[in-house]
Amino acid sequence: MTIPTITVAAAVILRPDGRFLLASRPADKPYPGYWEFPGGKIEADESAYQALIRELDEELGIQVTHATPWLTRRFDYSKLRVVLSFFRVSAWQGEPHPREGQTLSWQAADDIRVTPLLPANTPIIQALTLPPLLGITQAGDDVGGFLPKLDHALTQGMKLIQVREKQLAGPALTEFARTVVSRAHSAHARVVINADIALAQQIQADGVQLTAAQLAATDTRPDLPLVGASCHDAAELDLAEQLGCDYALLSPVLPTASHPGAPTLGWEKFASLISNRGIPVYALGGLAGSDLELAQRHGAHGIALLRGAWQ
């Protein structure tokens, strides 16, 4: 029996403080009282973006002035399959107010105060806990000189760090990674360890960043709260989704100083590869902090930086 499918445009309406808007479903709709992201069904003659604009006007009385594509999630209810195209809405005109009998509430991803949530929205809440910037360590041969840069980045609000130091191994790597975790956790930031699952578990890091080779060789998600994947093409992004990774890094977007002349994706191919993905994707390779808005216009969750994260 074929399950009927509907497609929906959904909005993550974001305030500057990071809070987003949830709405409770009215009594005359399925799942009454459940909380969800605003939005609605995409009509036959509409694009997802057009449906988003219309729905937010009809539901909330606001006119969207800036929205970027984000995630596409599929969820099967007992008699219906829903495909949700999520947009992040960061600018609008008017004050959101309920026009269809809803109740509205601004929420923070790490402190949801309303319940129950529609089941399809739980992964979206989890994705919203990921910050737009991921910093990749660049200690090199000067670990002592790197740590003040780390501390400065943490005071400036960095919340997600990947420890990747190819020149370190054994006790030296363990000591460095443990130091990064300690300092990051003191600043309420999270740390993933590149490739080394056992080390991540040993030092109580928050997660691991799987290499493309690891991704191809495993069919079981590592037993860690946060799992990322390093990807370079559609096949690897598919594997990251199938494994249940929390996010992916896709590279290289632009030319890099470390690999001059190497092939790059460019923004159009990057956007094509991550279109309709169900997990957040960070852009990596040849980027600066000023590229964040450009990356998000092409569907990225955010950007990952090496040297640029510590300047």
Score class of each variant (00 low, 15 high):
294 L>N: 05
208 V>L: 11
176 F>E: 08
128 L>I: 04
5 T>C: 09
192 V>S: 00
114 V>R: 06
132 P>T: 12
302 G>D: 12
93 Q>P: 03
77 Y>H: 13
97 H>R: 15
40 G>Q: 09
37 F>A: 13
13 I>R: 01
285 G>M: 01
44 A>H: 10
94 G>H: 14
246 D>I: 11
210 L>P: 07
81 R>E: 11
56 L>Y: 03
194 N>S: 12
117 L>W: 10
182 S>L: 09
270 F>G: 03
292 L>T: 05
290 S>F: 04
154 L>D: 12
238 D>G: 00
152 H>N: 11
70 W>R: 07
284 L>V: 00
147 L>H: 01
11 A>I: 12
73 R>D: 11
262 A>K: 06
199 L>R: 09
243 L>M: 05
220 T>E: 14
245 C>V: 03
88 R>M: 15
194 N>I: 09
207 G>C: 11
215 L>S: 05
268 E>N: 10
127 A>F: 09
181 V>A: 04
35 W>R: 14
48 A>V: 03
24 S>C: 04
294 L>I: 11
24 S>G: 07
183 R>K: 08
303 I>K: 07
111 D>M: 02
30 P>L: 14
44 A>K: 11
179 T>Q: 14
191 V>A: 07
131 P>R: 02
237 L>W: 06
142 D>L: 01
65 T>G: 01
139 A>P: 00
311 Q>R: 13
20 F>E: 02
253 V>R: 10
150 L>F: 10
159 K>F: 04
241 E>M: 09
190 R>A: 06
259 H>V: 04
43 E>I: 05
270 F>C: 00
88 R>V: 08
40 G>R: 07
107 Q>C: 05
60 L>S: 01
61 G>S: 04
199 L>Y: 10
164 R>A: 06
302 G>R: 04
41 K>N: 12
158 M>A: 08
189 A>N: 01
115 T>I: 10
27 A>E: 13
62 I>T: 03
104 L>N: 12
91 A>E: 15
229 A>G: 01
82 V>C: 04
196 D>S: 11
274 I>F: 04
28 D>Y: 15
115 T>Q: 14
198 A>C: 06
201 Q>N: 10
19 R>L: 05
203 I>L: 13
101 G>P: 05
151 D>S: 13
308 G>L: 03
207 G>R: 07
236 E>F: 06
257 A>S: 15
240 A>N: 03
115 T>M: 07
125 I>E: 02
69 P>L: 04
15 R>T: 07
262 A>I: 06
80 L>T: 14
12 V>K: 08
61 G>V: 06
82 V>Y: 01
240 A>W: 07
204 Q>Y: 06
241 E>S: 09
90 S>C: 04
250 L>S: 00
10 A>T: 14
64 V>Q: 10
84 L>T: 13
137 T>E: 12
266 G>H: 05
248 A>Y: 13
214 Q>M: 14
298 H>D: 06
130 L>G: 08
43 E>G: 15
81 R>Y: 04
169 A>L: 12
157 G>N: 10
29 K>D: 03
12 V>Q: 13
237 L>D: 03
214 Q>R: 14
224 L>E: 06
182 S>R: 14
221 R>H: 00
49 Y>E: 15
21 L>Y: 09
205 A>P: 13
247 Y>C: 03
311 Q>V: 04
258 S>R: 02
222 P>M: 03
4 P>A: 05
181 V>K: 01
264 T>N: 08
212 A>H: 02
